[in-house]
Nucleic acid binder design. Structure first.
Lengths: 394, 394
DNA sequence: GTGCTTGTTTTCGCCTCTGAACTAAGATGA
DNA sequence: TCATCTTAGTTCAGAGGCGAAAACAAGCAC
C-alpha cells in the first residue's frame, strides 16, 4: 500500500549516485574498487559516476594505498568544503548558530542570550538571520557555498513550507518561523523539533550510528524522543510523532505542565525530579540534580523506576535495536545509574523485545541540537547532491 | 541512512509493474487511459505492460465504457482467479483455514476445535496442513494455483525462515511452526502475529483503507496493535513491535498475566474488565461483557478512561492519521461508548496530534485474522507478481 | 625487460522509458 | 453514406542507464 511512485531510467542514476555518495561519506577515504563492493554497483558505473563527482568537485582524491603487486588504489572522499550547512538551536535561554562543513566540523558559531519569557518570534528570527551572517563572515564562507539552514526548535513543527510552530512552554502558538526567516534569506530552510534534530545527530554521528530501528530519548527540561524506523526519523502524519514525554505512565497521576496528568515528563523531567525531591531550585539545575543524585533520597530509585517504565513502553511498542539516552539530564542520570535503568526497563518489558534492545548513553554534548539541525541539510545533500546544490545557488 | 540499494534498469520494470498492478487492484476495473493518469506512467509504457500482464493472464478485460464521441475504453482488472491465497487463524480455541481468491473472496473454509490447554504444535501444524488440503479440494483449486499460505498466530513471531513463535498464553516458547509446516508443503509460507494480520486486513479492506500512518488496535482476550508507517506494517528489529497491551499505564499497577504490573491489558483486556467488575464468568465472555455494559457499574467508565489513556499514548507517540479499534471487545465497547473513548483520548493527549487523528471502529468481523493472513500473500503478489508465481510453482 | 597482479576505464550490447506519429473505433452531421 | 471529429490505444525511434568483458594502467618480482 506504499504510495505508487513511477520510476524512470533517470531516477536510477540519481538513486545510485546517492548510494555512492553515502558510501563514500560514511566509509571515509575509499577506493573505487572498494566502492564497487560496498554499493554493489559495477566497476563501470562506479568509474563513470566518480568521474562525474570529481568533475563537479563534490568528491576529491585523498592519496593512494599501495597494494602488494598491483596497481595502487586511489582513495576518494567527499570534499568537505564543497558546501557548508548552518545549524541553529533555538532553546529556552539562547539561540545558537553554528556553521559546519560537510564533515560536520564546526567552523564558526555565535550565541545570543534570550531573556526567559521574552521569546518574541521576530527577535528570534532576527537573531538567526544575523547569526548566519556572522558565522559566514567569521569563517570566510560565501553565502553561495551554503547548502541550507537547519533549525531545531522546541515544540511541534507543522509540516509545510511555513515552518509553523506550536510550543506551549515558549508561548508560541502557530508561529510561522520558517516564513519569518524566508523574508531574510533565500537559502533552503529546514525547521524541525529540537529533540528530533538531537536524535538525528546521535543517529548519524553519536551512539546511534548505524542503527536502523532505534529510539533516541531526550531528557532535559522537556522529555521527548526520536523514533527511527528503517534508518529515517519517523514523523507521523503531522510531524509530531515522538512526544514520549507526554505519554502517561500513571493514569490520573501527577499534574504536568502540558495540562495533563501522569505524564512521564511529570516524573523524570528535571523540574519533576527536583520537585519530588523537595528541592527548591536556586537556578542552577545541574547542581541541584547532582545534589539529589548524591543524596540517599528514595527519589533517585523512584526516578529510575519511572524511567524504566517509560523506556519499557518504547521497547514493547517500537521494538528498537537500540535506545540512546540523551539530553543533559539523561546523560547525568545514566552516568551512575545505567545498570539500574536497564534493570528497571527489563522488569517492565517483554523478554523478547528487551533482549533485542541495547540501551546506551548519548555521547554528543549540548551542541547536538545545532549539529543535528545542520545534519538535516547534509541529509538532503546526500540524498540528491546536485539538486541541493542548485537550490542553494538559486 | 536508508539501506543502500543499488538499482539497475530492470528494477524499474519490476517496480512499475507493481505500481500498475496495485493501481489496477485497488481501483477495480480501469481503462489503460485511466492507468496512465493514476500511475504517472506514459501511455506507451502502460500499453506494453498491460499487454504483458494480459498475456500472463494476471489481468483480464472487463467490458467497455462508451465515451461521448471517441473510441470506447476497454476496462481491465486483475484476474481474481489467477491465483489463490490460504489464510490461517490459529487462536486459543480453534484453527481456521480459509481459501481466498485474489479479490479476497472466501472460496472455502474449515475449522478445527482446539481443547484449551491442548496446543500441541504438531497437532496445530497437522490441522493447518490438512485444512489446506480440505479447502483446496472443496473449492476445486489445484495446489499449483496457490500463491502462498499466510498464518496468523498469537504471540511474538521471530523473523526468519523457521517462523519461531513465543506465545506465553499458549504455552509455546520457541515453537518453529514455520519449519513444522514446511515439512508438509512447499508453498511459500508467511507466519505473523494475529493482531498484525488483523491489522493488515483492516488496513487493506476495512476501516483503515487508504491510511498511510495508522494504528489498528485489537482488543480481545489479548490486547495488541498494528502500527502502520508509510503504508506498511512496522515490525521493529525483531518483529515484535506493537505490543501495546503490555505497555504500562499505571506504574506498579494491577498484575498482568505477562508477569508485569500495570499493563494496559490488565485494565482493558476482557478478563481484566470482568475481573474488575466482579463477574465470575460461566464461560461466555460475550454475554458477560454485555452484562457489564448494561449495568450501571463504574467499571464501564473506568474502562473507557484506561482505554483513552492507552490510545492517547499512541496518539502522542505515533501521531497517526487514523486509529482503528478492532477485536470483538473493542467493537463491543465502541458500539456504545465511542464518543466517550474519544473524549478520554482527547483528555490525555496533546492537542495537535489529537486533532490530526480520527478514531473509528473496525468493520471486519472475527474472520479478519485469517483474511489478513491471506493478505500477506496478496501483498507479496502485488509487490512482485511474477516472482510470487514462480515460487509458488517451484 | 618480461610476466604477473590488481585497479580503473572504455566499449558494446541490452533494457527501459518517453514523445510523437500512427492506427482503431466510435459519434456526428451534411 | 461518408467525410470529419474525438478519444483510446499501439508502434517506433531515440535517449539514458547498467553490466560484462576487453582494454589499459601501474606497480612488483625476477
Amino acid at each position: 500500500m506504499a504510495r505508487p511512485q513511477r520510476r524512470t531510467v533517470r531516477d536510477i542514476r540519481r538513486g545510485n549516485r546517492a548510494v555512492l555518495l553515502r558510501a563514500l561519506y560514511f566509509s571515509g577515504p575509499t577506493s573505487r574498487n572498494d566502492l564497487t563492493a560496498r554499493t554493489g554497483l559495477s566497476a563501470a558505473t562506479v568509474s563513470t559516476m566518480t568521474a562525474d563527482l570529481l568533475g563537479e568537485n563534490i568528491v576529491v582524491e585523498a592519496g593512494q594505498v599501495e597494494s602488494d603487486g598491483g596497481r595502487p588504489r586511489v582513495l576518494l572522499r567527499v570534499n568537505p568544503e564543497y558546501g557548508f550547512a548552518v545549524g541553529v538551536d533555538v532553546a529556552e535561554t539562547h539561540v545558537r548558530v553554528g556553521l559546519f562543513d560537510l564533515e560536520m566540523t564546526e567552523r564558526a558559531k555565535v550565541d545570543y542570550m534570550l531573556r526567559p519569557a521574552r521569546h518574541d518570534p521576530e527577535l528570534v528570527a532576527r537573531h538567526i538571520l544575523s547569526g548566519v551572517e556572522v558565522v559566514l563572515s567569521d569563517a570566510g564562507v560565501a553565502p553561495e557555498q551554503v547548502l541550507g539552514i537547519g533549525v531545531g526548535v522546541p515544540g511541534i513543527v507543522e509540516p509545510g513550507a511555513d515552518g509553523v510552530i506550536h510550543a506551549k512552554t515558549f508561548g508560541w502558538d502557530g508561529v510561522p518561523l520558517g516564513a519569518l526567516l524566508r523574508r531574510g534569506t533565500s537559502l533552503p530552510l529546514y525547521v524541525d523539533n529540537g529533540a528530533k534534530t538531537m536524535g538525528q545527530a546521535e543517529l548519524w554521528f553519536g551512539s546511534g550510528r548505524g542503527a536502523s530501528e532505534a529510539v533516541i530519548v531526550l531528557l532535559g527540561v522537556g522529555v521527548g524522543a526520536t523514533i527511527v524506523a528503517d534508518g529515517t526519523t519517523f514523523r507521523g502524519v503531522s510531524s509530531s510523532a515522538g512526544e514520549w514525554g507526554h505519554t502517561k505512565i500513571v493514569a490520573n497521576g501527577r499534574p504536568c505542565r502540558c495540562g495533563g496528568r501522569g505524564c512521564l515528563e511529570a516524573y523524570v523531567g528535571i523540574e519533576a525530579i527536583l520537585d519530588r525531591a523537595g528541592v527548591t531550585s536556586q537556578g542552577d539545575w545541574e547542581e541541584d540534580l547532582a545534589g539529589v543524585l548524591a543524596s540517599e533520597s528514595p527519589v533517585v530509585e523512584e526516578t529510575v523506576t519511572y524511567l524504566g517504565v517509560g523506556l519499557a513502553n518504547l521497547v514493547n511498542l517500537i521494538n528498537p535495536e537500540k535506545i540512546v539516552i540523551g539530553g543533559w539530564v539523561g546523560v547525568r542520570l545514566g552516568e551512575s545509574l545505567l545498570p539500574g535503568i536497564r534493570r528497571a526497563t527489563a522488569a517492565n518489558s517483554l523478554a523478547e523485545p528487551y533482549a533485542a534492545t541495547s540501551i546506551v548513553l548519548g555521547r554528543l554534548g549540548p551542541d547536538a541540537v545545532a549539529l543535528g539541525a545542520a545534519t538535516l541539510v547534509l541529509e538532503e545533500f546526500l540524498n540528491a547532491p546536485q539538486v541541493a546544490r542548485i537550490t542553494a545557488a538559486g
